[in-house]
Amino acid sequence: MAVNEKDGKAVIAAVEAAINRHGASQEELIPILNDINREIGYIPGEALDEVSRLLRVPRSQLFSVASFYRMFSTKPRGKHVIQFCESAPCHVAGGREVWQAIQDFLKIHEDETTEDGLWTLLTTSCLGVCAVGPVMLVDDDIYGNVDPSQVPFILQKYH
């Protein structure tokens, strides 16, 4: 999923696929947006236009939903997304040091994307695996008991 804006066709195809899968009703809006977000990496403006046309829901209303939920992004993201758990159990288990190590290694801060478009760094709410904190999620892979020194090794796997 490239950082550069996808060409219009791919966006339209992603929207149509999502609506075909879930049905064209407002009730299905969150699953539809979720699919688009996964497919394109974020929800581009063109996608909202298309959803608006097919669902007959005003674009402003769609944008208000897309911008409300933390898992949706209306801005392009990197090829890989790191989500770091910022909750109390991970925080007390040494999460602060790991968080610092990730920022130092990638040289970006929260909500930023590396210049090469490879990484986006986000925080997430509790993932419920507190027994193995500190926890981080790289795309769909979860890593527990993370130690600052492991950060480079974990991230290098994704090159």
Partner: peptide, 8 residues
């Protein structure tokens, strides 16, 4: 089953 999208 309905999934949320990350809002406490």
């Amino acid at each position: 089953v309905r999934m949320g999208a990350g809002a406490f």
